[in-house]
Computed example of a mutant assay.
Amino acid sequence: MYSVTWVLLALALCDVKVLNAESGEIEELTGLPKRCSYDYAYGYYGAYCADLGLNKIPSLKSGVEILDFSENKLREIKATCFSDYSGLRMLYLADNKIYHIEENALASLTYLQSLDLSRNVITHVPPSLFQLPALKKLHLSGNPLTHMDSSALSKPIRAPIEYLDISDCGLTEIWNWGILPQLLFYNISQNSLRSLDVSHFVEMCNLRKVDMSKSIDRIRLCDIKPSIKWLQQRRVDYLLLDDSHVRLKSREFAYCPDGTITDEFNATHTLCLSSYRVPVADVQASRSTWARLCGGLAGFLIGFMLLLYLFHRYNVAKIKRMTEKKKVPPPIQGDKQSSELLLNEVSSA
């Protein structure tokens, strides 16, 4: 009886150990370090490291041009984070826990065209970010930019920014950016703005669309009318995906004065137009294209000249052979017959 009990107890302990071993193996399998995957996108070589629970940038393969590091636990952007990846063109850091960006932390990214810092806890963006020579798209939405103001910017902004998103940043006032001649799309939606002066748009001379949804409902109608009129005159589309468009069609808005567009505004707008420049990235791409074209043309010319040289050498050799053949005199028929007779006489004797 006791022996049977001990056997059953031993089997039970073995089962427990097996189960523990199996659960341990499962935990080890699920606890394996997750790695970035690599692939091509938009014609660039990219590293996909999203949603891996990482708190720092891992060691990546050389030549990476796109990095998706969104949905991780990165808290700071230090100068050493991207120093080895100066060829980055697109950088996605959305949905992390970033609260601090060191000055010049991104200064080495001279080819960077798109930067997404959305939905972090950033209160201040270093001025050097706006000096990146190729930066076209900047996403800052969902950050409490409470420490940003005009004094925090180094003017003029040299980055050729075409798309700028500062939506849902808890802003009541928007600082003066200075001249942004390349800006095409401006998103200031979901902020509780108390004012939006026409001077804010004067230095955005190529602006095509601005999203003001859920941002101007607290501004008095007569205070916002000069800005609306300026945008209408410059044929800028303004999006109002809320009830604000109803207010702008009201009789009260129609009776508001249009406001005075001063000579200073027009002069500033003209200065903005004169400062428009081709983005550095486009210049670099153009130079690269021309370099490839010139290289291909040079290769074609060299090959064509080599072919001509070989053809010339062939013709020279052919002419030389024909000339040498003409120099050998043909045998005389009479001499040939005399030689045959002489040989016959000798043989008969």
Rank of each mutant, 00 (worst) to 15 (best):
A47I: 14
A285P: 02
I219E: 00
W177R: 06
V18D: 03
S37C: 06
T5Y: 00
Q190C: 14
L240D: 03
D15I: 11
I157C: 07
D197F: 04
H269Y: 05
L9F: 04
C169D: 06
Y255V: 15
I179G: 06
D149P: 08
T289I: 08
K318F: 03
I161H: 04
I188A: 11
P127Q: 09
A254P: 03
F185D: 11
V121A: 15
A254F: 02
N315G: 06
V346H: 13
Y186E: 06
E324W: 02
N72V: 04
G53H: 01
K249M: 13
L91S: 06
N20D: 04
I57W: 02
K325Y: 06
T30A: 04
A298M: 03
S141Y: 09
L271T: 14
P329A: 09
L32R: 10
Q337P: 11
P226E: 00
L184F: 06
P160Y: 07
E340G: 08
G63Y: 03
V125T: 03
H245S: 14
I224M: 07
E162M: 10
R287L: 01
A298P: 00
S154V: 14
Y48Q: 11
L115V: 13
E340Q: 11
C81I: 07
G303Y: 05
S83F: 05
H124F: 12
I224Y: 03
E345P: 10
L180R: 05
I157Y: 02
N20E: 03
Q284G: 02
P279G: 00
I101R: 00
L112Q: 09
